[in-house]
Structures are given as C-alpha cells and as structure tokens.
Design a protein around this nucleic acid. Sequence first.
DNA 1: TGGGGTGGTGCATTTTTTGCACCACTGTAG
DNA 2: CTACAGTGGTGCAAAAAATGCACCACCCCA
Lengths: 301, 301
Amino acid sequence: MHSNFLKYFDEVARQGSIRKAATVLNVSSTSVNRKILSIEKQLGVAVFDRTPEGVELTGIGSILLEHCRKTLHDYERTRVLIDDLRDLRTGHLKVETIDSVAFGILPQALHQFSQTFPDISISVTTALPDDVMKSVAEGSTDIGISFLLDLHPDVRVISEKSAPFGIIVRSDHPVAERNSVTIDDIASYRLVRTLDARGRNSIIDQVVSTITSPLSTHVFTNALIVAKQMILDNQGIGLYTKIGFIDEIEAGSLKFIPLVQEGLNDMRIGLLVSATHGIDPAKRHLCDVIGRALRMMRLDS
Amino acid sequence: MHSNFLKYFDEVARQGSIRKAATVLNVSSTSVNRKILSIEKQLGVAVFDRTPEGVELTGIGSILLEHCRKTLHDYERTRVLIDDLRDLRTGHLKVETIDSVAFGILPQALHQFSQTFPDISISVTTALPDDVMKSVAEGSTDIGISFLLDLHPDVRVISEKSAPFGIIVRSDHPVAERNSVTIDDIASYRLVRTLDARGRNSIIDQVVSTITSPLSTHVFTNALIVAKQMILDNQGIGLYTKIGFIDEIEAGSLKFIPLVQEGLNDMRIGLLVSATHGIDPAKRHLCDVIGRALRMMRLDS
DNA sequence: TGGGGTGGTGCATTTTTTGCACCACTGTAG
DNA sequence: CTACAGTGGTGCAAAAAATGCACCACCCCA
C-alpha cells in the first residue's frame, strides 16, 4: 500500500547507518541506499549528511521524517480500525440524549456511522440531562449526550462543547436585532418552555434558582419540536441553547441571541460513556463521529 | 516517494468510476483497477462496491480514503516546506519577548528551529509588553511574544495562550499549600517585583489600578532571573505568570498558586507578527515552533 | 436486440526494484 | 605505515512489479 521508502527512511534515521538499517529490514543495503538517493534526487536536496561513521539527518531530512512517521503511524491506526471492522460488524448501540441534540446533529452523525457499520443497529432515546447521566452510569446506555451538570463518578466525558443558553426568537421579533440580552430584558415577553412528562423542573430552574424577574410562561410542552412550532407561531420566545435550532437559524426563520446570565452562558454539553464498561471499535467510532459533529458547530453566536 | 495508489484511490473515489479516473490520471484503467484489487486483497475486504454504473465507496473504503487524503495533503505541505527551505536557507530573524518567556520555552524552540534552518541567525531581546508590541508593529522585530493588552492595529496575533497570574513562592512558604489566593491574602507578605530600567510601572499596576490592599514591595529588579533568586532566598514572594518558572516548579523548589483577581487571571500571552510585512518560510516555521511550544505548556495550575 | 457503458483478466512488454560484487573513502589498531 | 573493518556509492544482470492492449462478462437503456 505505502512505498517501502517510508520504512526504509525511518529505520535509517533510527540506526544512523544505511547498512545497519538494511540488516534490520532484511534487505540489501543497495536497495535502501538507492531509495534514499532517488528521493534526494527527486527533492533536489540531501536528507542525510554522510559521515565516516554513517549518516545523520539534515534539517530537511527531519522535516521529511516527521511526515513519514506521521504517515506510518496513521496508517497503523487505520489498518487496525479496518481489521476490526472486517471481523466485527454486527451488534447494537444505545444512544440516549437530551432532546435538543436529536435534531440536526444526531441524524447526520448516525448516517455517517451507518455507512461504516451498516450492520450495527442503533437506538436513540431522548431524556432529561440527569436521566441521561444515570443510565450511562449504570450501563444501560452505551453513549449519552447531556449537559455537564453533576458528573456521576462512573461516567467518563469523551468530549465536550460549550453551549451557552440564549433566547430563541422569530426573526421579526423586537429583540431579534440585539447582540445580547439579560433575563430582565425578556421578562416582559411570554416564554415557551419544555418540561418532562412528569412535570419536573427544567434545567433552567436548576441553575438559576433566584431569578431577578419572574418569567411568565405561556406554553409548556414536553417536546422540543412543539416548542419550536410555538415560537415560529409567535406564541412566545424560547430559552435554550442554539443546538436544537440550527436548521431554522441557518434558514433565517429563527434567531439566537446570547444571554448574559451567570450559570447559563457557560453551560457545556458532553459526550458520555460508562467509565466501567469497555469501548469496542463500533462504540469508539460512533463517539468519534458524534464528537466531530459536535465540535463542528458554532454555538456561541 | 509515495505509492501512486494514493492518487489512484483518491481519484477513483472522486470520479466514482475506475475508467474515468484512469483517463484523468493519464494511465490505463488496467493499472488503476489492479492497484485497487491488490489493496483489497491485502486488506481482505472491499473498499468499493461495484455497481453497473461504476464503483462506490464502502464504509471501510471511506476510512481508508480519509487516511490517503490526509497523507497526500500532509505530503503536499511537507513538499512545499522543503522546496522553500532548499532555496531560502540564509538570513536573520529578530525575536523580541517579555523576559519570562525567555526562560525554558524559547531556548528549546530555538534549538528545534536551528536544526531546520542552521544558516539563519536569530537574535533574542527582552522588553516590556508594550515595547514588544510597538517594535513588532513598526517592523523592527520579526516575531514578538507579549501579553495581549492593547492590540496595535498593525500587529497580527498568530497564536495565543491563556496565562493567568498567580503567586510564586518557595515550596515551604505558608501559602504554598493553598489552591488559590486573593490579593488580600498576600497583602501581609513582602513582594519581589520586576520593573524596567527606566523605572516604569510593571504590567500589574496597569491592570489593577485600584488595588484593595497596598502591596509592600521588598525588592525591585529589572531582571526576572534576579527576582527568581530572591524568591528562592525567601526574600519575598512573586506575582507572575507561571511561564518563567516552569523549571523550578517542576523541580519542586518553587510553587505556583493561582490568583483570584479580575483582570489578572484571564491574561493572555500571544505570538505577534507584523500585519503589514510578509511571512517567509523561515519566519513561518519559527512561529510554528514557538507556537507549538507555547501550546504544550500548562499554565493554569 | 444492439450499442455503449461498466469492472475484470491473460499475455506480452516495459519499467522498476533488488542483490551481488566491487570501488573509493575514512578512521583505527597493530 | 600498513592492514583492516567500517562506511556510502555504482555497474551489471536477474527478478519482480507495473503497465497497456485486446478481450470477456455483465448491466442498463434506447
């Protein structure tokens, strides 16, 4: 697959001698020597200084070596991944997430994943932040996506992303043109909020217990998709992170305005796995894919 | 240098057809086809699904493709760097820095640089943050390292690093065991401070103009190395970022305790170049090397 | 049903790689 | 001063790999 020059070059640099390297590599020194000469001719510059005792890297040589080692190393990793995939291609993964993430980002990530592991089925359920944390901790869920509030000791955070809260409003709303708002600024507007089925408080109340102004809530719902419709219908404004509304914001129908409020603007979303259970290749890859999708987003403005 | 499989594979994936790719690559389809078959045999798994219209990547194929593209891209970059180096290998670079950076991190970075550009001489001078900024702006210095206080419009920040201020004390000092301190906590201890030769105020006074408690200074010096000796001699405690004391802290003779003080714990150190002057390969590389060394450091605890 | 598209293959040719034997050079031990 | 054991570099011939032509089997679509 890769030219054997990579290995040759690496070994010569390691040994400081063409002949010694050739011995280690089980080939004739002629072959190694000529490969190096050929590359030097190709580059138009020496990669080794010749000394009576052998060879030593030039400055340019070490740059090239860095590239070669990086390539070899990356190939090694890729190769292992492929080998694992070849053998291990069936199974099932459970993902539990806060509902906002289930829109936009997750479908895209799952699509990418299922191209690599077409025979691994995936289940996605939405839950409240604490419940996500709990089911990951007890091992009933493979991968969790949740706010990083109270970290459970049995949970490991694979990757995290800052996701400040802000106001979600229609583009023609009076506050849509502002760069930031405070809780006080929005006190006069009606709020659309999501609560879970059992009617417990939302994450916002957990963080901001003593709110300056009482917020008047107009619509309660247990599904983000309903909240979204309500906001689009001008039934009120939302108090969320940007992540569940990416599509509408990009399309221009909704706007996100950062909120200046201690505790809500340094919120973080994390990718969670059990600290006590192992990570097989498929799980690893799903984490990679979701993590990458998370990192790609701009959630702060 | 690299096997042509990389290009073949990349192009076939791009075109979705072996024959089309072969045309683009100016080789026979036989050759391309056989290379791919050979790799698939080597990996023991298909990288393309064959359809009546051509080929399309399998999951494993896209993983391999990612590796190949990464390799090709990195090679391209390496190649450009080498070509530049071959031609342009003499010259001089001026570096101006705040004194704390001149210890530990800079020597190491310069050593690495001079291995790549052995014939480029470097001068390093230390100066106050504002002076560094000024000489970079007016072009008399190629690369500056300084606190990011008042950004000059002609200065470009190549990379930056959070460097909060804290207390530097001997390991056996009373406050050495604390996790953090406030200005008030240290008001009773004598301070060792650095001032420039002309006796102007240090950076600390610029930021914290209204200090809660007047700090009693015991030793003034214009060289950080003197301050370091004074602290080691128990003549007082220091108020600095961690960066100039890395060696002693790792050796255990000094300790760094973060300071809780608005304006001083969100200080940032930046790598500065002129926004109006060009960046040649050597300068680029020196920036890379210093920037990498900067990022490697843990300055917050 | 035929024509144009696809990937795959047997065979001959060309190109590249490899290894042996040998050269030129250097530092060192006798 | 010489002999020797290292080093990298090279001419030549054998071995191996890559390439291209001509052709096959297959599929889709007019």
